[in-house]
Design a protein around this nucleic acid. Structure first.
Length: 637
RNA sequence: GCCCCGUUAGCUCAGUGGUAGAGCACUCGCCUUGUAAGCGAGCGGUCGUCCGUUCAAUCCGGACACGGGGCUCCA
């Protein structure tokens, strides 16, 4: 190898090669390689390459901003999921017109073919160069750290990237760890877009000053950007808050309060069907059903330990009869009281207590979001009390049960996440935690699904496995959680008598499949984009008469459907037929049954399916059989 | 909780320092209908709430409520 050979020399000048991986580390393409180095290309369409592309884009944006707003002070500008951002201290928040100007300036820079040059500087030099950038100066003081917030500092070496124009003049510089693309020509200008602004605290600490953040997105190609924008439109179209209003499913009346939903009749039907099916499956799986109150004296949550850890997340107490009462934020302590209401035998275990338990949590005002983050919601909550020996088998069955049930609701693509102890926020011994974590890990591994580790993400009382499900457009939602708990049985002094007559402590498993019914409702609503399968749709069939005198005939068909358990109705209103079809279509009704003179003469009805396809002259008995089967099979239409 | 933005009829949205409009929905007529909007008329708003500025506030200022986008958080 010639001395001075660069990574670019080895990898070629293809613009899809953004940086090099040299002995496992990402390096700029002008990195001088040594004999024996392992050098591989990093392409724009792999995750690391994309991050480099976006990070370079963040620099270009910052250059454009300081060009247009010379007083703007720089914060940090890393790549993130789907794009990048850069934070700025400016006297006025950016307005949409500013974004347009900045975007235009960025395009000029991208097209001008500036190159990125890496330069190692001493701390003194950095201080001198960045004298006008107070936030950057602050970062220099933090060099050597590894957290994302201070990735800009360059780690061990302090490095600066210069943006250099074609004449060799430095146009802009930034303290940065890199690496970057060699030249702005590597970033396709038609694949970059600024998305929005937001105010954020410097280093995410609310004691710090606030900066203005600009989010942008960047992709390897125009098509990539277009696909992303289409995805965003699709997600907006499916937004459960929008669909909830359009389909008249639920609302959040101001008079009740933020984060507190009311379900309208059609939403109520869907919810009932969801709950009924869940109830049926839980009965079959050996659960016992219980009910507990919505308020309780403080003593209960003092005993459980929740008040110590989560008082901030609870509605404030009500003073009454010389005691403080709280709205319940979780059901477990109440289930423990049911367990402890009398002596328990090993013969009763595992004891599985199930409840659709409504809980109230004081979510901070800024985090409430439709049904996915509400202040009052109903958990499909169960607590399983079992022996240590029963636990592995119980967890195994539970995971299978959960996944099976989720599939019945139409979610099919899953992975699992194992959340482990956060030593700062937990109770119990190391040994207990290790043991519980190990058992959960084994059960999760047995499922033949991808397993992701979430270090320190567990609740204070024990580790958890959660099921992450992908919806119809590929978004991931945390669905079910299963948590092992050695602590609560101890705090509540729960016991059972073993076969040998000794008193033993049961182990408790917390689990919720939907998490919250409201949230699961929202996920399904978005997953199906409002077009619920026949068994969940609030109205499965609408009968549409061609003219008024066909109403009675359809009414008869609908009566038969109803007696077969199908939710069906006739649109007997004064609208004309095409209008009725339009209405049913807007309501995303799975089946429209149309009848006119021809159908009546043949003893038939005509189908119009939700996708617009038709099937004419179907004998009434056949039509009913087709619909009943689809509903019973929980099939999607 | 913090920052930015928003709130006009049931819904979607125009508009103005001198107390308001459209389309859809709804009601009532007419029309009697074959696969996404038949025609006409009518009903409907203390312009989110309160407090200020002003001769006068839906419009300007402030507080609060609710919503949206983020930050932080999510037992």
């Amino acid at each position: 190898m010639e001395p001075g050979t660069t990574a670019a020399d080895l990898l070629g000048g293809d613009r899809s090669v953004l940086v090099a991986r040299v002995n496992g580390e990402l390096k700029d393409l002008d990195y001088v390689v040594h004999a024996g180095d392992d050098v591989a290309p990093v392409l724009a369409d792999e995750p690391e390459g994309l991050a480099v592309l976006r990070h370079s884009c963040a620099h270009v944006m910052a250059q454009a901003v300081q060009d247009l707003f010379p007083q703007a002070k720089l914060g940090i500008g890393p790549p993130v999921k789907d794009g990048f951002y850069y934070d700025f201290m400016v006297s006025q928040p950016f307005v949409p017109e500013d974004l347009t100007r900045i975007e235009k300036k960025m395009l000029e820079i991208l097209k001008s073919g500036q190159s990125f040059h890496r330069r190692i500087v001493t701390e003194d030099e950095a201080h001198r160069e960045l004298a006008g950038e107070p936030f950057k100066i602050e970062l220099i003081g933090k060099k050597g750290g590894n957290s994302d917030e201070i990735m800009e500092t360059g780690g061990a070496d302090l490095t600066v990237y210069d943006n250099v124009d074609r004449k060799g003049a430095v146009c802009w510089s930034d303290l940065c760890r890199g690496p970057h693309v060699p030249n702005t020509k590597y970033i396709p200008p038609n694949a970059v877009k600024l998305m929005r602004t937001a105010a954020v605290y410097w280093l995410s600490d609310e004691r710090n000053p606030q900066l203005q953040r600009i989010y942008g997105t960047a992709w390897p190609s125009k098509e990539g950007l277009k696909a992303y924008l289409t995805f965003l439109e699709e997600a907006a179209r499916r937004d459960h808050r929008k669909l909830g209003a359009e389909l008249d499913l639920f609302s959040f009346p101001d008079e009740i309060g933020s984060g507190l939903a009311v379900f309208h009749p059609k939403g109520g039907i869907i919810r009932n069907v969801m709950e009924d099916y869940s109830r049926q499956r839980h009965i079959a799986a050996g659960y016992d059903f219980v009910n507990t109150p919505h308020v309780t004296k403080a003593a209960l949550y003092e005993k459980s330990g929740h008040l110590d850890w989560y008082a901030d997340g609870m509605y404030p107490p009500m003073d009454m009869d010389n005691a403080q009462y709280y709205l319940k934020p979780m059901n477990c302590p109440m289930h423990n009281l049911i367990y402890g209401a009398r002596g328990r035998s090993y013969r009763e275990l595992p004891l599985r207590l199930f409840e659709f338990g409504t809980v109230y949590r004081y979510e901070k005002s800024g985090v409430v979001q439709g049904l996915t983050r509400a202040r009052g919601f109903t958990q499909d909550d169960a607590h399983i009390y079992c022996t240590r020996e029963q636990m592995p088998g119980e967890l195994d069955n539970l995971l299978t049960f959960v996944l099976d049930l989720l599939k019945d609701y139409g979610l099919t693509d899953f992975y699992l996440e194992l959340s482990t102890r956060d030593p700062e926020k937990s109770i119990g011994t190391d040994e207990e935690w290790e043991q519980a974590t190990e058992i959960l890990y084994e059960a999760a591994k047995a499922q033949d699904l991808d397993l992701v580790l979430d270090e320190g993400g567990a609740a204070f009382y024990g580790p958890k496995v959660s099921v992450q499900a992908k919806d119809a457009i590929g978004r991931t939602w945390q669905m079910s959680t299963i948590q092992v708990d050695f602590q609560m049985p101890q705090r509540f002094d729960l016991e059972y008598q073993a076969a040998d007559g000794t008193r033993e402590r049961p182990i408790m498993i917390h689990r919720a499949l939907f998490g919250s019914i409201e949230r699961f409702f929202a996920v399904l609503l978005e997953h199906y984009a409002g077009a619920f399968p026949a068994w969940l749709a609030p109205v499965t069939v609408v009968g549409i008469p061609v003219a008024d005198h066909h109403v009675d005939y359809l009414q008869d068909v609908v009566t038969q459907l109803k007696s077969a358990g199908v939710r069906a109705e006739v649109d007997a209103g004064s609208d004309r037929m095409p209008k009725k079809i339009r209405n049913a279509q807007k309501q995303k009704v799975p089946y429209m049954l149309i009848a006119g003179d021809d159908d009546i003469a043949a003893g038939a009805v005509s189908f119009r399916y939700r996708d617009g396809t038709q099937k004419n002259g179907v004998p009434v008995a056949e039509a009913i059989a087709e619909i009943v089967e689809a509903v019973e099979q929980r099939r999607q239409v």
